[in-house]
């Protein structure tokens, strides 16, 4: 396996594996977040958040997730820089519209926008949950006799109080969805899992999956914005 990591294909394979890992995380994250709009009392979401905050397996997975993100971003940056310098003199006139999708050409920009969103998102929630003494401490609540942090209040509070944040979260969902319209199928192609038949299937699943992710994450702030929560 010598110099696998320095080869172009090796780097692409690691990028796709990190991407697929992030996709797996997104699925869990979305499923849990949808509890926000399933149960207006907030109990279900609080139980979910409490489970995530206290489960030992999740404690192990959390740093791995952080490493996964860093890995993905660092690799993507190296690849993008190399790709930029592979064409020292640019074309004067370029017409790529019919060649490939806009998302596939702008993966780094889309990823960068997702990263900006991620920073805001972590500051909004993760920071307050992890370091209550530094940020706004979380209120307590009791569900079925178990005392736990009222994470629902934190989230619903933000969305109810600020239309700007709601719109920002909707945008975040859309950027992520666009990143995945290409990223999802590209990841399989990079690891070699594609052929004439599977390519069509993967491209189709990518569109559906990206839509679910974008719509799923956007629907939550929208729900609060429209005043559907009590």
């Amino acid at each position: 396996m010598s110099n696998f990591l320095t080869s172009s294909i090796g780097k692409k394979m690691l990028l796709s594996i990190s991407g697929l890992f992030l996709i797996a995380f997104l699925c869990v994250h979305l499923a849990l977040n949808l509890l926000l709009i399933v149960d207006n009392s907030g109990d279900l979401f609080n139980i979910g958040a409490h489970f995530m905050a206290t489960n030992p397996i999740i404690k192990i997975v959390e740093p791995i997730l952080a490493i996964g993100f860093i890995f993905h971003i660092v690799l993507a940056s190296i690849l993008t820089l190399q790709n930029r310098s592979a064409r020292p003199i640019k074309y004067d006139r370029r017409n790529q519209a019919g060649n490939c999708t806009w998302s596939s050409r702008n993966m780094y920009i889309l990823g960068g926008l997702v990263l900006i969103f991620l920073a805001i998102h972590l500051w909004n929630f993760w920071w307050n949950i992890k370091f209550p003494s530094l940020g706004t401490p979380l209120a307590e609540t009791t569900v079925d006799g178990v005392a736990m942090e009222n994470t629902y209040a934190l989230v619903s509070g933000l969305f109810k109080s600020s239309v700007i944040y709601c719109l920002l979260y909707i945008l975040g969902g859309i950027f992520l969805g666009l990143h995945l319209t290409h990223g999802f199928w590209s990841a399989f192609q990079s690891i070699g899992f594609s052929n004439q038949i599977w390519r069509k299937r993967l491209e189709c699943v990518a569109k559906i999956f990206a839509f679910i992710i974008a719509a799923g994450f956007s629907i939550i702030p929208l729900y609060f914005m429209l005043g559907l929560a009590n």
Binding site: H182, W185, Q189
Partner: peptide, 27 residues
Amino acid sequence: FGNCTNTGACESECPKSISIEHIARLN
């Protein structure tokens, strides 16, 4: 040469319509 990001522009412009399915096989 740069690193492939599977945009598929090559197969659209290839005069011989070589499919990027071959890139999956190369990988």
